[in-house]
Amino acid sequence: MTQMPDISTAGLAVVFLIAALFVWLAGTRLALVGDEIAERFNLAKDFVGLIFLATVTSLPEIVTTVTAARVDNAHLVLGNLFGGITMQTAILAVADIFLVRYALTSWPRKPTYALLAVMLIALLSMLLCTTFLGDVEVLYGIGLGAILLSAGFPLVILLQRTFDQKESWAPVDLPDEEERAQTLRSRLRSPEVSSTRRLLTEATAYSGVIIAGGTALALSADLLAARTTLGASFIGVTLLAAATSLPELSTTLAAARIGAYTMAISNILGSNLIMLALLLPADIAYRQGPILNEATEGAQLSISAGILVTAIYAAGILIRRTPRYLGAGLDSWLVLFVYGASIVALYHLA
C-alpha cells in the first residue's frame, strides 16, 4: 500500500482521523436505518443485527483485509482480524456501562445468542490450532484451514435460524424497550416516516461512506506501521482494529440507546463471525502461500483473548442474573479486563 508515499506522518494521522470520523458518523446512522428497516419489513431485530448491520459494519475490515493482503502484508491482515474480535466484543461492555440500566446479558429471550457464542468459540479454537500446526495448501496458495473457517459463517447462520424456533426464555428485569426507542427517535430523526426507497438509499449511501473511509484507514495505517518501531502486527491489533471497529462501536451504542439490545449483541457476534469468513478472501489475495502460516505469537494471543471474552459473555447469557457493579454487569468488567491485559501483553511482544 504505497499510494500515499509523499504524505508526512502528521498528514497520515490527519487522514486516519478524518476517515475514522466519517466511518463513525455513517455507522451511527446505520443503526437507526437498520431499526427502521426491521420495523418496516417486520423483521426480528436480532436478525437485522446479525445479517444487515454485521455485514455493513464489517465493510472496513473487508476493504482493509483485501487491500493489505494484496500487498503481502500478512501481519497487518491477521492483526486486524484477530485483534478486532476481542476489541469488538469489548464494545458490548462499553454499551453495558454507559447505556444499559440492566446487565446486557440479561436481555436475550432465547438461548440463540449463547449458541452463537459457543459456535464462535469452536471456530476460534480451530483457528488457534491451525496457527500452531500450520495450514495445508490446497490450490494456488490457498489454505484448507482458511476455506473451512470461512465456510463456518453460513453454517452457523443456518444453525442459528433453525434453533431460533425453540421455546423462549423468560427475560429478567426487562427494560421498557419501546418507550426508550420512541424517545431516542424523536431526538435523532425527523417526525415524518421515511419511505422504503429513502431507507434503502440511506443504507446504500452510508455503506459507501464506510467503504471509502475503510480504504483510507487501511492505506494510512499501513504507512504509519511502516514508519514506527511497533510493526504491522501490533498496529493491526491496536490502531487499525480500533479504527475499523468504529462502525461496530457506533451502531452498537446507537442500538443500545434505542433499547434494541438484541440487535446490538447480534451485531457484534455476527461481525466476529464475519472476521473468520474474511480469511478466505485474504488467503486468495495473499500470494505467498497460506496466510495463516504467517500468524505470529501476537496473533495467537489475540485469538486466545477472543475465545476468553466470548466465553465470558456466553456464561453471562446462560446465567442471565449477572450481578452489576458500577453500572455494568460483572461479565462486562471481566471482558474489559481481558481486553486491556491482552493489549499490554501484545505491546510487550511487539
Rank of each mutant, 00 (worst) to 15 (best):
A255W: 09
N272F: 08
S250C: 06
L223F: 02
A232P: 07
A226N: 07
L224Q: 10
R227G: 01
L230S: 06
A254H: 02
I235L: 02
L223D: 07
N267I: 02
G236Q: 10
T244W: 11
N272K: 11
G236R: 13
N272E: 05
A226L: 12
T244E: 09
S266E: 11
T229V: 04
L249Y: 13
A277H: 00
F234N: 03
A264E: 11
S271G: 06
L276V: 08
I268S: 14
A254F: 02
M263Y: 12
L276C: 03
L224C: 10
L253A: 06
L249G: 14
S271Q: 06
L240S: 05
A226S: 13
N267H: 06
M263L: 13
L269R: 05
L269F: 06
S266L: 03
L239E: 04
L269P: 03
I258N: 09
L253H: 11
V237E: 06
A254M: 10
L223P: 04
I258R: 15
L253S: 10
A260T: 05
A260D: 15
T229L: 08
S271M: 06
P247R: 00
R257M: 14
M275R: 01
F234K: 09
S245T: 05
A264H: 14
T251E: 06
T228H: 01
T244P: 04
A256W: 12
T229A: 10
G270E: 03
L246M: 08
T238V: 14
I265L: 14
I265A: 10
I258K: 15
A254P: 09
V237Y: 12
I274F: 11
I268D: 13
L224M: 13
A264N: 14
R257H: 14
N267A: 01
E248H: 10
T238C: 08
G270V: 12
A226F: 03
G231T: 00
M263K: 13
S233K: 09
L273D: 02
E248A: 14
R257T: 10
V237H: 07
I268W: 13
G270D: 05
T238N: 02
L249D: 12
T238K: 03
S250I: 05
T252L: 12
S266G: 05
T238D: 04
N267F: 05
S245V: 02
I265K: 07
G259K: 15
T262D: 15
A225G: 15
A241T: 00
V237Q: 11
G236I: 12
